[in-house]
Simulated scan of single mutants.
Amino acid sequence: MQLPPGCTTLNPRAISSLRHLSYQVRVFSVATLTFKVNLNRSINQDHTLFLFYLGFSLFKPCYYPTHIQCWTDWFDRDDPTGSGDWELLSLLRAQNPGKICPNPVDIEARTLSGLTPAAAGDVIYKSDTSTGFICKNQDQKDKKMCSDYRVRFSCHPPFCGLGVCWTKWYDRDDPSGSGDWELLTHLRKENPGQICDNPLYIEATTTDTLTPALSTGDVFHTLNPTEGLVCRMIDQKSGKCRDYRVRFGCPCCD
Rank of each mutant, 00 (worst) to 15 (best):
R242H: 15
L223K: 05
S154C: 08
D197I: 11
R242S: 15
E203G: 08
C165R: 10
A119V: 05
G121M: 14
S147I: 06
R150A: 14
P80V: 04
Q138R: 13
M233G: 07
Y170V: 03
P251T: 05
R242E: 15
L3N: 07
D142E: 14
P97W: 12
P175S: 09
T48D: 03
F220W: 06
F248W: 05
L184K: 09
V123N: 15
P102G: 04
G161F: 00
F248I: 03
D73H: 07
Q140C: 01
F75A: 03
L21E: 09
G84M: 11
D208L: 10
L183M: 13
S147W: 05
A119L: 07
Y63C: 02
H221S: 13
G6W: 02
P102Y: 12
Y170E: 04
T116H: 10
R93A: 13
D142V: 10
V246C: 02
S178W: 09
C70H: 09
Y53I: 02
T209K: 15
P157K: 00
L54K: 06
H47D: 04
L18H: 08
D85V: 01
G228C: 00
Q24S: 15
D218K: 07
A213S: 07
R247N: 04
V123E: 12
G82C: 11
Y201I: 00
C160W: 01
N103V: 13
D78C: 06
G193R: 10
F52S: 15
P175W: 08
H67E: 15
F35D: 11
V27E: 14
C252Q: 11
F75D: 04
C155L: 09
I100D: 01
P199D: 02
G114V: 00
L58W: 01
V105M: 14
D73I: 01
D148E: 09
N198D: 14
D254W: 10
T32A: 11
T185L: 06
T72P: 10
L214A: 03
S176F: 03
W86L: 13
F159P: 05
W74K: 07
G55T: 02
K237W: 09
K141Y: 13
T167F: 00
G239V: 01
W181D: 02
R188L: 02
N137D: 15
P175I: 05
L229D: 05
G84Q: 08
T131Y: 11
D106I: 05
G249W: 06
K141T: 15
V164F: 06
W166A: 00
Y170T: 02
S147M: 02
A31G: 03
